[in-house]
């Protein structure tokens, strides 16, 4: 039962974050690329302000899987690293925390491009 409630929370949190994005796309003339930038930046800022962590606490993957969760990892990584090693952490913390995602995107992107061909929608 706990598991189902947990997944339900994930579903609702993730769904709502995407709905915010959808409303922005439909109502304003923002392109998806701009939406992604806004979400990742807001993820960073909200994490810094201590707003995003409670959302992650509640929604788990529902808050970390959307691109704002990428901002959450960046901000969390930077702050942890500053705690641990001080000034240098400003530069190393963020990307270190997201290195797996970035490397995965590059390598899978590269491999996919080797074999795939674009087609008409």
């Amino acid at each position: 039962m706990d598991m189902i409630i947990e997944l339900l929370k994930v579903f609702v949190t993730g769904g709502l974050i995407c709905v915010i994005g959808q409303i922005l796309i439909d109502k304003t003339k923002l392109t998806p690329a701009r939406i992604l930038v806004i979400f990742v930046t807001l993820g960073v800022v909200f994490t810094f302000l201590g707003i995003y962590a409670p959302i992650v606490e509640f929604g788990k993957s529902g808050a970390t899987v959307p691109i704002s969760g990428f901002g959450y990892s960046l901000a969390k990584g930077v702050m942890q690293e500053v705690d641990q090693i001080g000034f240098l952490g400003i530069f190393t913390g963020g990307v270190k925390a997201c290195s797996a995602g970035i490397s995965a995107a590059i390598i899978f992107g590269f491999l996919a491009a080797l074999f795939a061909k674009p087609t008409i929608k």
Partner: peptide
């Protein structure tokens, strides 16, 4: 096409936006 932001915002959408131009500009 039908999911819109539902497929753009999650990390899979980030991956899609890396792979799509990589395939196309090969």
């Amino acid at each position: 096409k039908f999911a819109g932001a539902g497929s753009t915002i999650p990390i899979t959408g980030f991956s899609n936006s890396v792979v799509a131009p990589a395939i196309e500009f090969k």
